[in-house]
Design a protein around this nucleic acid. Structure first.
Length: 432
RNA sequence: GGAGAGAUGGCUGAGCUGGUCUAAGGCGCACGAUUGGAAAUCGUGUGUGGGCUAAUACCCCACCGAGGGUUCGAAUCCCUCUCUCUCCGCCA
């Protein structure tokens, strides 16, 4: 949620910032300001009535004690009571509209984030060079199939398109990646959290998934009157709700979490011919990093998360580039996002393997996550940040494609070998 | 799945035959007194959200798990939901 004060102080600037994301919110802002004014006036008049009710009602037992007739006063209070009810009903309706509009607004991009979409993304740095082959490289779908790492047909048989099965060394390679990531994060002082994979609606609301993007997740069937649950689309959704409705101590910040979870996504209508194999599926594995910080620490935390994601990619021996996304390419809930992209030869291009974002106080406001500032004794909203560290589903294809040899074998990155019993090279099934 | 009990401030815990609840007491915390210093003791204060504000000053409103109802008046009575605990059943 955006701070209403920001909207009131400079509505034009808020509209301009949101336009960078390609959203025109002029009408919404006007409506929000009108509703806010109406809301405050109703609160004012309603509270006056309540003050009178409190004052007069207190006298009734005294009148009775004195043996006087209180029926006249009670009748008068009945009228006030009815007026209060009316006024509260109006207020409730107004606040509901107000809240719906506010929840529907995306986060504002940071001042330094470029307007526009992908075309305005800006490379901030890169590491290494794209791998050059002295033979014609195969794509990861063929390699994974030939090496027996991934079973695509049976994945489709079990669950339909967009699902695959990791088998044998493929499963172990996946597991090795997760272990490499998790061990690195633990060494960096992050707490490992294993979350429920089914989350309640409020978790999605706090993270910014809902109300606008509820079609992107898998919903579980629920009875009438039963809590609605969905399959988590990223561990971020769970980690951000960890401290929902809590007042944290300033001294315990920053909180640094990582979580491994499969991510379940509908990805409706997003299939493209170049996203074969494991590049986009309904379920993929990811280790997610999340930090809760004081506002003044969040830029530093952002750099830390980007650095950590880069270090993991570097550790695997990959060339990568780090890209600062233009406003329109950032997620709705985020003020800034850097992507780390690696080269996947078969796609003749770069694919995102990590996306690090700063939500500022947008998620904290939605989820009511605050800390008590020691200097002032007052609660403030925290900043939340998240980043993938990393998603394996695009790393494994990159490993097999980039590390393939002319004879079809694949070299195991050194950092993973200790998780694979020292295995240095993966040989096609049958060949030893 | 069946039966029962419960949810009160940072924590603990009373209130729950509706009106001295403006939520007791204790612990903790902050400040002060005392002290050479500390402990102990004593005193004072101690939440959140909102409205009005130059104000983190007053004043006002709301908040006893959440939502609704009854009433002039609800922590207290009624209904619905969520969560926790105990016992039974089932189960990796």
């Amino acid at each position: 949620m955006i701070d209403i004060k920001r909207i009131k102080d400079d509505p034009q600037h808020v509209i301009e910032l949101m336009a960078r994301k390609g959203c025109c919110i002029t009408e919404e802002i006007e409506e929000i300001l009108a509703l806010d004014a109406r809301r405050r006036s109703l609160i004012g008049s309603g509270e006056q009535l309540k003050a009178e009710q409190n004052r007069v009602t207190k006298q009734i037992p005294e009148l009775k004690k004195a043996g006087q007739d209180a029926s006249g006063v009670m009748a008068a209070m009945k009228e006030i009571s009815d007026k209060i009810k009316q006024s509260d009903e109006q207020l409730k309706a107004i606040e509901e509209q107000y809240r719906t509009l506010m929840l529907g607004l995306y986060n504002l991009p940071d001042e330094d984030v470029a307007p526009g979409g992908k075309e305005n993304n800006e490379q901030v740095r890169s590491f290494g060079q794209p791998h050059v082959f002295d033979f014609t490289p195969k794509n990861h779908v063929d390699l994974c199939t030939e090496l027996g790492l991934i079973d695509y047909p049976r994945g489709a048989k079990l669950s339909g398109s967009g699902f695959w099965i990791y088998r044998g060394l493929g499963a172990r390679l996946e597991w090795a990646l997760l272990n490499y990531f998790i061990d690195t994060h633990i060494a960096d002082g992050y707490e490992l959290v294993l979350l429920p994979h089914m989350l309640g609606y409020e978790a999605g609301l706090a993270a910014g998934q809902f109300p606008k993007f509820d079609a992107d997740v898998f919903w579980l069937e629920s009875e009438e009157n039963e809590r609605r649950r969905f399959m988590l689309p990223t561990a971020e959704t769970g980690l951000v709700s960890l401290h929902r409705d809590e007042l944290l101590k300033e001294s315990e910040l920053p909180l640094k979490y990582i979580s491994y979870s499969p991510c379940y996504r509908k990805e409706a209508g997003s299939y493209r011919a170049d996203e074969r194999g494991m590049v986009r599926g309904h379920q993929f594995n990811k280790v997610e990093m999340v930090q809760y910080t004081r506002p003044e620490d969040s830029d530093r935390a952002f750099d830390e998360l980007v650095g950590k994601a880069e270090a993991l990619v570097k550790g695997l021996g990959f060339h990568f580039r780090t890209v600062k996304l233009a406003a329109g390419d950032c997620s709705a809930a985020m003020a800034r996002t850097f992507d780390i992209e690696i080269h996947i030869p078969s796609m003749q291009g770069y694919k995102e393997v990590s996306s690090v974002s700063n939500a500022r106080d947008y998620q904290a406001r939605r989820g009511n996550i605050r800390f008590k500032r020691e200097d002032t004794g007052k609660p403030e909203f925290v900043n939340t940040l998240n980043g993938s560290g990393l998603a394996t589903s695009r790393i494994l294809p990159a490993i097999v494609e980039q590390n393939q040899q002319a004879d079809g074998r694949v070299v195991v990155p050194e950092v993973l070998r200790k998780y694979l019993g020292g295995l240095e090279i993966i040989t096609p099934a049958g060949k030893k």
